[in-house]
Simulated assay, not measured.
Amino acid sequence: MLQLLLISWLSIFHPFYVSVTEINHNAKNQSLEVSCRIFYDDLEHTIEKQYHTQIDIVHPKDKAKVGQLINDYIKKHLTIKADGKPVVLNFIGYEVQEDAAWSYFEVKGITGKPKKFEVHDDLLYTEHPEQINMMHIAVGGERKSTKLDNPDSDAVVLF
């Protein structure tokens, strides 16, 4: 309880920057379901700086264009290999929940149960030196988590 109170108190004086990426193996559909949760204001700011364009993730004038920018940005900063093979993230879409944008991807053709994931995740690193990227990977009912602190951007997770 004291730890939670301390973290809450510190966040008032020093904002923290965290994203969460979930990778779930769906054996029935032979796919990976990937979702990224990023504070939408941080994502907007980063996309605006990198793409030199103004966007509004919460109330977009053109949701397809905003989705395309989010898709492009995430694909440049999140790459995954399953059992040594690079996977192609297929963008499903995004939605806003409270203060975060959830982006959804699918990877088809994942036959068998993956044993090794190599993930490169440097989402928001260019704009936030204190960025932390959390990862949760689930295969066959087993879930493993790891954390990447900027500048560390590579993780290997074994099942």
Rank of each mutant, 00 (worst) to 15 (best):
130 E>F: 15
6 L>C: 11
65 K>Y: 14
10 L>G: 07
54 Q>M: 11
133 N>V: 03
157 V>I: 07
119 V>G: 02
73 Y>M: 03
146 T>H: 00
72 D>V: 01
62 D>F: 05
16 F>S: 14
133 N>S: 00
148 L>D: 03
6 L>H: 12
58 V>G: 06
55 I>V: 00
59 H>E: 05
42 D>I: 00
11 S>A: 08
73 Y>H: 02
7 I>A: 15
36 C>P: 02
113 K>N: 14
57 I>D: 05
120 H>L: 14
115 K>T: 14
33 E>S: 06
60 P>S: 05
65 K>M: 14
36 C>Q: 07
17 Y>A: 00
33 E>R: 11
7 I>W: 09
23 I>M: 08
110 I>G: 08
116 K>W: 01
131 Q>S: 05
96 V>F: 04
157 V>E: 00
108 K>Q: 14
62 D>T: 01
37 R>L: 15
123 L>M: 02
45 H>L: 10
20 V>W: 11
153 S>G: 13
122 D>C: 09
130 E>Q: 15
57 I>N: 03
71 N>V: 04
9 W>D: 10
56 D>I: 05
69 L>N: 04
37 R>C: 08
101 A>C: 01
101 A>D: 10
87 V>T: 08
50 Q>R: 01
37 R>A: 10
1 M>W: 11
17 Y>E: 03
74 I>L: 06
30 Q>F: 12
127 E>D: 13
79 T>M: 09
140 G>Q: 04
140 G>E: 08
54 Q>E: 15
108 K>W: 09
149 D>Q: 14
54 Q>K: 05
125 Y>F: 09
108 K>M: 07
87 V>D: 02
69 L>R: 04
135 M>P: 08
158 L>N: 10
10 L>F: 14
115 K>P: 08
51 Y>I: 08
27 A>I: 07
125 Y>V: 04
92 I>A: 08
66 V>A: 00
74 I>W: 06
9 W>Q: 15
110 I>T: 06
68 Q>D: 15
134 M>I: 10
11 S>W: 11
64 A>F: 06
6 L>W: 09
11 S>Y: 06
48 E>T: 04
98 E>T: 14
42 D>Y: 01
32 L>T: 04
114 P>D: 02
102 W>Q: 02
7 I>N: 13
155 A>E: 01
88 V>H: 15
64 A>K: 01
58 V>W: 08
52 H>I: 06
128 H>N: 13
90 N>V: 09
36 C>T: 08
90 N>A: 13
47 I>R: 05
138 A>G: 14
132 I>W: 12
36 C>I: 08
11 S>D: 04
42 D>F: 01
37 R>K: 11
68 Q>V: 07
100 A>G: 06
90 N>H: 12
42 D>C: 04
2 L>I: 14
131 Q>P: 03
86 P>I: 05
152 D>Y: 10
51 Y>E: 15
22 E>H: 13
158 L>I: 14
36 C>K: 03
124 L>I: 03
80 I>R: 00
62 D>V: 01
84 G>H: 09
115 K>C: 08
17 Y>L: 10
142 E>Y: 11
103 S>C: 04
38 I>K: 00
90 N>E: 15
42 D>M: 02
69 L>K: 01
125 Y>D: 13
95 E>R: 13
37 R>V: 09
25 H>C: 10
148 L>W: 04
112 G>H: 07
48 E>N: 02
96 V>I: 00
135 M>Y: 07
41 D>I: 05
110 I>F: 12
33 E>N: 14
1 M>Q: 13
18 V>G: 03
142 E>F: 12
150 N>V: 07
14 H>Y: 13
